[in-house]
């Protein structure tokens, strides 16, 4: 039963499908911003299928099994995260204690998988990309953890179910600040412009992914698409009341609308901002964003 949930709904297949649809939204909006028509609806699916039947290339001198397992580590982790998250959304009262912490770790795993995969590539450009990715993780993790504590402070629980059933954090000043910081951290977690220095097509020619091809590359692309779907839902669950299923059609519709709004915001930011350098990113996350996050935590503690 759990296995079916994991592989089909709400785990891998579900998250992958909606994730690819979301990446279509991303590409369509990007195209409109750039005055283009944009791809047809099924294009992201064709891309993945095409990659799956291509040949797999592995750099000589590396540990082959490790090189091929790295993408799988990421995609499995995000499938598991999706499973846990959707169980919370569907049955908020039946989740386990501390699932918030488990999810934080699972959402870091795809990035770690990218880093390990890039290191296994034995390519200097990939190494640089991997090291940037790792520094980026360090940078955004601090404000991200701090703002995730805001609802924890308010409700004195690290059970996501309790947080979902309690008053949504976004109805307070601290909650709004926290959500804003979290959206910027999400931008970096998805390595979207302005925080795409791990890939940096123009200087590192794909960086972390440079040696990947065929099915392993498809896995990385799928992982990214799934993250594009799961992360906004996670933020909504923590700060914004999630997607309510038990309250009739209108709240459900509003929930989906909120999700699409979050995605469109990210896409617009990525199309209008230039890439920053890695040291600028670290300073940005450890400086102003952390200060705002601390402020949000203090406000939450004071009950605002």
């Amino acid at each position: 039963m759990l296995l079916i949930q994991f592989l089909i709904f709400p785990g891998f297949l579900f998250a992958a499908t909606i994730g690819l649809v979301t990446s279509w939204i991303d590409r369509k909006v990007t195209a409109r911003v750039q005055m283009r028509v944009g791809p047809p609806f099924l294009q992201p699916f064709y891309d993945i299928i095409k990659l799956m039947i291509k040949e797999t290339l592995v750099p000589a001198g590396t540990s082959k099994w490790f090189f091929l397992s790295a993408p799988l580590l990421g995609i499995t982790a995000v499938s598991l995260a999706s499973l846990i998250l959707w169980r919370v959304l569907l049955t908020p009262s039946q989740t386990f204690m501390g699932d918030l912490i488990v999810l934080i770790y699972l959402f870091t795993m795809p990035a770690i998988a990218t880093v390990l995969g890039s290191f296994a590539s034995q390519n200097p450009l990939a190494s640089l990309g991997g090291s940037r990715e790792m520094k980026l993780i360090l940078a955004y993790e601090l404000p991200f953890i701090l703002v995730l504590l805001v609802p924890v402070i308010k409700l004195q629980s690290i059970r996501l179910g309790d947080i979902l059933l309690g008053t949504a954090a976004v109805h307070s000043i601290s909650g709004v600040l926290a959500l804003l910081v979290a959206i910027l951290c999400m931008q970096a977690k998805l390595t979207l412009v302005p925080f795409d220095m791990p890939e940096a097509e123009t200087e590192l020619t794909g960086g972390a992914y440079i040696e990947y091809s065929g099915p392993p590359l498809a896995m990385f692309k799928l992982t990214r698409a799934m993250m594009l779907f799961t992360l906004p839902i996670f933020l909504m669950t923590v700060f914004w009341g999630g997607i309510p299923f038990a309250q009739g059609w209108l709240p459900l519709f509003l929930g989906i609308l909120k999700y699409i709004a979050l995605v469109v915001i990210m896409v617009l930011v990525r199309n209008t901002a230039p890439r920053v350098r890695i040291d600028q990113a670290v300073k940005f996350f450890w400086g102003p964003l952390t200060i705002i996050a601390v402020l949000a935590a203090i406000l939450a503690y004071l009950g605002w």
Binding site: M52, I53, T56, V58, P59, K64
Partner: peptide, 11 residues
């Protein structure tokens, strides 16, 4: 996907 075809190449 590709019947396990793996080719070793230089970086």
């Amino acid at each position: 996907g590709n019947k396990g075809k793996v080719r070793m190449v230089s970086t």
